[in-house]
């Protein structure tokens, strides 16, 4: 098993490294923006046995994400961390930059709080292995936004194709068809597996996977 922990905030990366050391476990820590640091499956020679059919899969077997799901102003964007040489900038500038990066972890939610999650779903469609599974935490309005956007996308493509959005009209399942790199869309099934009601909102864990499994 190879475990990799990713965070956009350098201070969080240090904390992860420390926690894993204290627990005597081997985890590699990457300071990066979601999976943008990973080589795309199509550019590697690994797992491309089905690439001729447009099916290239990634290497990630288990992906975990507790995304920033709070609603934010429309157009608010999370910043991407920059690579700077620490010996060339003043401490105050570095502290300001660290602060902006830390804040960025909570920004970019958009009016439905799903902008960061949607970016992760695009990457999951590309980087999950054929039988890979993505466990993600969502608040109820995040899931509603994903379903609404899926319906809108189907509406633009084919108005008669509504039958497979929900399985048996279940509120706990949706087939997402708009995520991936664009050249070969790979549908993702999204199923609610755990829920907890907290004051004012419902938090749920969803299992996201390739529907042919």
């Amino acid at each position: 098993v190879h475990c990799i922990a990713v965070d956009i905030n350098p201070a969080a990366c240090h904390a992860t490294s420390h926690t894993c050391l204290l627990n005597n476990v081997q985890v590699d820590v990457v300071c990066g923006d979601l999976l943008s640091w990973m080589r795309h499956p199509k550019s590697t020679c690994v797992n491309i046995k089905n690439v001729s059919q447009g099916n290239s899969y990634g290497l990630i077997d288990l992906l975990l994400f507790n995304p920033p799901y709070v609603r934010g102003p429309n157009g608010e964007c999370a910043i991407v961390p920059m690579v700077l040489k620490s010996d060339t900038i003043e401490n105050s500038t570095e502290n300001q930059l660290q602060s902006k990066i830390a804040d960025a972890a909570w920004l970019g939610g958009g009016p439905d709080g799903v902008e960061v999650l949607k970016k992760a779903l695009h990457q999951a469609a590309d980087f999950l292995s054929e039988r890979g599974v993505f466990y993600v935490l969502m608040i109820d309005y995040n899931y509603a936004a994903l379903v609404r956007e899926e319906i809108n996308a189907r509406c633009e493509q084919d108005v008669n194709n509504f039958g497979v959005i929900n399985e048996n009209n279940s509120k706990d399942y949706v087939l997402l068809t708009t995520f991936g790199d664009g050249t070969a869309k790979k549908p993702l099934a999204c199923r609610r597996i755990l829920s907890r009601q907290v004051p004012g909102e419902k938090l749920s864990v969803y299992r996201v996977y390739r529907p042919h499994i």
Binding site: V1, H2, C3, I4, A5, V6, D7, I8, A12, C13, A15, T16, S17, H18, T19, C20, L22, N23, V25, Q26, V27, V29, L34, L35, L59, I60, D61, L62, L63, L64, F65, N66, P67, P68, A105, A120, S129
Partner: peptide, 21 residues
């Protein structure tokens, strides 16, 4: 098996997963 946690924060989940696997 490749396991990736996005937004690991303090690393509590990463450490727990690594320990359980």
């Amino acid at each position: 098996l490749l396991v990736v946690e996005l937004g690991s924060g303090a690393g509590l989940l990463s450490a727990a997963v690594a320990k359980s696997l």
